[in-house]
Structures are given as structure tokens and as C-alpha cells.
Design a protein around this nucleic acid. Structure first.
Length: 149
DNA sequence: GCCAACGTTGGC
DNA sequence: GCCAACGTTGGC
């Protein structure tokens, strides 16, 4: 079963907030490669919840996919920061998935920790210039991150 | 189809 | 706030 890593700015949605909400829509992805990964997700697949653009970027916990990709409503909402004037109900290029909370780590596994860990050298997150917000994680990488908790 | 200009991401 | 790196746009 594939594993994933998804980035979120904690100001928008943090792992702790997902824990409180139990479930949330993962929307606003506006990059085609990331969207294609969203579309390939299956129910019950797990992902690392990564906090980006914050004081301590890193992996904060684990979530699970509960609903596979469907047209992202935020693209159609003029009040949304993710609004896309080119999208319509008939033709919406963007996708969202629904996720649920699984686990919050006792502490953030920050970038320095990830970079120094064995077995994570190929993780797209750690590649120079990588900006993908949704990416696959190999089973070995998944285990390597879990070992850092 | 090329590519310069621009906007965005995201760590620091 | 800075800036490197990337994706997208749009003229040609």
C-alpha cells in the first residue's frame, strides 16, 4: 500500500487541529503533479502530516485518506484563497480528498532530524528545490521516519 | 515550441 | 525580509 507525505501550513491546518476535528477536507492543491498524486490515492492509505512555512518545519503526525479525489469546491468559491476563475462545475481541474486524524507525534520531526536520518536521502521533500506539496513515500522511508519518533 | 518575465513556495 | 528554485504565463 502506498504511503504519502502532504504539506500544510499549520496556520491553515495543523496536525493538532486535524486531531480536534477528526476529519477534514484536503483542498487548495494547485500544482498538477501534486494533484495527480492526490488522484492516485486510495481509501485507507496513510500520509505524513508535514508542517511547512512555519517556525519549525517538519513532520507532525499521521493521517489517513478516507475519501478519494473529487472536484475541489474551493476552486469554485470566489471568497476562497484557492479560487480559480478558469474552473467550473462542469470542468474543474482541481481535486480534493478527505482525510482523518491518526496520530500526533510527541514532538515535531524537524528537517535537520530528517536529513540526518539514514534511508531518507531520496525523499522528495529533502531534494534541493523540491516544492511538491503532495508526494509518495517509499515503505522503507515510512519506516525510517517512524523510527525517529 | 521557445524562453523571458513573473509569481509562488518555503527554508532560513 | 531575503532569496534560490521552481512552475506558469504569454509574446513571438
Amino acid at each position: 500500500m502506498p504511503y504519502w507525505l502532504m504539506k500544510s501550513e499549520p496556520d491553515v491546518l495543523s496536525a493538532a487541529t486535524l486531531q480536534r476535528l477528526h476529519q477534514a477536507r484536503w483542498d487548495g492543491v494547485r500544482n498538477y503533479q501534486a494533484r495527480n498524486f492526490l488522484r492516485s490515492m486510495q481509501a485507507d492509505e496513510l500520509f505524513f502530516f508535514y508542517h511547512s512555512s512555519c517556525s519549525r518545519p517538519g513532520i507532525a503526525g499521521i493521517g489517513r485518506i478516507v475519501r478519494t479525489a473529487y472536484p475541489d469546491p474551493s476552486a469554485l468559491d470566489p471568497r476562497s484563497p484557492y479560487f480559480d476563475a478558469r474552473a467550473s462545475t462542469v470542468k474543474n481541474p482541481w481535486s480534493a480528498v478527505d482525510v482523518e486524524f491518526v496520530e500526533a507525534f510527541a514532538g515535531i520531526i524537524d528537517l535537520a532530524c530528517l536529513r540526518s536520518a539514514p534511508g531518507l536521502a531520496k525523499l522528495p521533500l529533502l531534494q534541493k528545490g523540491s516544492r511538491l506539496s503532495v508526494m509518495p513515500v517509499e515503505a522503507g522511508e515510512w519506516a525510517a521516519v517512524l523510527a525517529l519518533r
